[in-house]
């Protein structure tokens, strides 16, 4: 294992959630200055800041459990594609506002449930991070749901675009609820939550918003998977190449 990361089970568990947040935070950051209105640009900035902030707290906690020399920044900037364990949904690129909203909607609906459950983690630090993140995710979901409804039930054009966006990202939603040996271990220790048990509520909440938006519930039977074990789509490599460029080009420097 490279010296920039950590292998303790709890740390690995923290890093996977940190990766989810960092990567979607980075995707949102790409969109800054491209929103349909100035007000929405400010909102996107807040979303991005919330996610990167959560990622930093989780990385810092993970780093504190690892060896010397591991920091939040080494975790973010010096790991490779295969070492990132985020779900595929968050690394998917967007073309326009509809994509940004659809991706955010599915992810926020999941994160509100995740953090809500993790607030009762017996790990106090994680529980504290979850409590703060829950407040943020609740707002993210409200914001994204509001837009799903407005775009779905707006004009014919926006309906078509929004339908395409939710259909496009749908195949990356199943992965959010996958469990593995690490999850089992964390659940057993009273630290983590089994995402599988969040799926029904997620499905209900998502369906409610989709029908209010007059959108057809996506039915793509294919569900992609692999993010948690580092089997990513090709999009992540380019995202990392850009994000890690400074640290890779100018190694071992203080910024």
């Amino acid at each position: 294992m490279s010296p920039v990361t950590t292998t303790a089970p709890l740390a690995t568990y923290l890093v996977r959630h940190a990766d989810d947040n960092l990567i979607i935070g980075q995707r949102l950051a790409e969109y800054i200055s491209e929103a349909p209105e100035l007000e929405e640009d400010l909102a996107i900035g807040n979303l991005s800041l919330d996610h990167i902030g959560v990622a930093m707290h989780l990385y810092q906690y993970a780093a504190s459990l690892g060896g010397a020399g591991i920091t939040a920044d080494t975790l973010a900037f010096l790991r490779t594609e295969r070492e990132f364990s985020n779900v595929l949904l968050v690394e998917q690129p967007h073309v326009g506002f509809g994509d940004v909203i659809a991706r955010q909607f599915f992810f926020a609906a999941y994160q509100t449930l995740l953090w809500e459950a993790l607030v009762s983690s017996c790990d106090e630090t994680l529980s504290g991070i979850a409590a703060k993140a829950l407040k943020e995710a609740t707002y993210h979901l409200r914001h994204a749901s509001g837009w799903v409804v407005r775009l779905g039930d707006g004009t014919d054009e926006s309906h078509t675009r929004m339908q395409a966006a939710v259909d496009g990202f749908w195949r990356f939603t199943g992965e959010l609820f996958e469990s593995d040996a690490l999850v089992d271990e964390m659940v057993l220790a009273g630290i983590g939550v089994d995402p599988a048990r969040l799926q029904t509520t997620w499905e209900t909440r998502v369906s409610t918003v989709l029908s209010e938006a007059t959108l057809t519930h996506p039915s793509d039977p294919y569900q992609a998977t692999g993010g948690r074990t580092g089997m990513h789509t090709e999009h992540l490599g380019y995202l990392l190449a850009e994000m890690q460029w400074m640290q890779r080009t100018f190694p071992n420097m203080e910024w």
Binding site: E34, P36, E37, F97, R150, L151, G154, T155, E157, S158
Partner: peptide, 14 residues
């Protein structure tokens, strides 16, 4: 950015 956002602004107004 402005042109790309036109459909969003129109949808919200509608």
């Amino acid at each position: 950015a402005w042109d790309d956002g036109a459909w969003v602004r129109e949808a919200a107004t509608a």
